Amino acid sequence: MSSALPLCQIAMSVLDQPGTYAWYQQLFGFLPAGGTNSFRGPIASSIQGIPKAASSCWWLVDQQSQFQIELFQFESPVVRPQAKDWRPCDIGYSMVSLWVKDFDACLTRLDRLGGKLESAVQGKSGQRRACFRDPEGVLLEIMEEDIRARSKRQRPNLSASVAVRSVTMSVEDIERSAQLMGDIFGMQELDSELIHSAEHESLWGLTGAQRLQRVFDAGDMFIEIVQYQQPLGKKLPDDYRISDQGLLNIAFGFRSWREFNRVHKRCKANGILGNSRALHLGAWSVVYVNDQQGFSFELLMVKPWYDSFMGFKAKPGWKQSDKLEPSLRL
């Protein structure tokens, strides 16, 4: 059943949407791709599983096709800041890794923007890596070497100087998470050290940490699942909401309703239930599902001709005041 179910979206809840949006463009070369103020009201609350949901959502794209970074700024519920003592071993979506076209230039821009590395740059020339946090506290890793270069999808946005390579999840039960990725989402498992090995722990300040890890093929990217044995991470708080500051979920992309429905049915059959029934709006369909460890996943079907309305096409010069597509209203 294994295949490359493509990762099409990484979503963040932010406190400063304009500032963070500009930061990702200035530092990495992400391209603006529009936005919407339409994710609000009873239907949005039902889909996202949070009360009285009201947010604006702005999109950024990198070199890849059918992939975006989503920046949500929630008006309701009020965004709760990330804990000051948060560590990458804590349970939740923990890190995004990116290939950058010019590693040294990226570090220079980071310094100019006031960013600080978590530790010294690691690796020999051509394979260097570094870690730092974005303005919202999200942990980012930059890579000089494109770990997906040997097997990549079409990359239509070559004017962007960045490509997301992986997202890391810190989980309590790695076997259950691996079953979700492999048996339920139907993804292919790869070499567990394809992305990271023990020496990389120092990059994000966990030198000497011990963890289990599994890696899965996600199209032109990877999903890395880790379970820390030492140090043990904090669990998600009982009152956690995906509107809390930080990485909130990832989305898998589909091009046909049939394939979307097939995976959704398999989720329901295995207890990976949605906050609501799937919403079908002709050109696109969506449902947020939740695993038993508290992780939110989005299943998103978008017809190719509708990509530009859903933030999968670059829109140079886009600004907040631009009109938003009314058909996105929920």
Rank of each mutant, 00 (worst) to 15 (best):
S2C: 14
S3K: 14
A4H: 07
P6I: 02
P6H: 04
Q9G: 08
S13A: 10
V14Q: 08
V14R: 06
G19L: 01
G19Y: 03
T20V: 14
Y24D: 04
Q26E: 08
Q26P: 00
A33E: 00
G35T: 06
I47N: 05
Q48L: 10
K52G: 13
S55C: 11
W59D: 10
Q63M: 05
S65C: 13
F67K: 02
Q68E: 11
I69A: 03
L71S: 03
E75G: 09
R80A: 09
K84N: 08
D85F: 00
R87Q: 12
G92I: 11
M95F: 10
S97R: 12
V100S: 03
K101W: 08
F103G: 01
T108V: 13
G114M: 03
G114W: 04
G114K: 00
L117F: 02
Q122L: 11
K124S: 14
K124F: 14
G126W: 03
Q127I: 01
R128T: 03
A130D: 00
A130H: 04
F132E: 04
L140H: 00
M143K: 15
D146W: 02
R148A: 14
A149L: 09
R155D: 07
P156C: 08
P156G: 07
N157R: 12
V162K: 05
V167E: 08
M169Y: 13
S170K: 05
E172V: 11
D173W: 08
A178S: 11
G186Y: 01
L190W: 06
L190R: 05
H200C: 10
W204Y: 07
L206F: 07
Q210M: 14
Q213Y: 05
V215G: 03
F216W: 07
F216N: 02
G219C: 03
D220T: 05
F222S: 15
I223E: 02
E224D: 09
K234Q: 11
K235C: 10
L236R: 10
Y240V: 11
D244M: 11
Q245F: 06
G246P: 03
L247T: 06
I250V: 15
S256R: 05
S256G: 00
R258D: 13
E259W: 09
E259F: 11
R266T: 13
K268C: 13
L279W: 08
W284I: 08
S285P: 03
D291F: 00
D291W: 01
F295T: 00
F297P: 04
F297K: 06
F297H: 10
Y306R: 07
D307M: 09
D307N: 12
S308V: 10
F309T: 10
G311M: 06
A314H: 04
P316Y: 05
G317Y: 04
R329H: 13
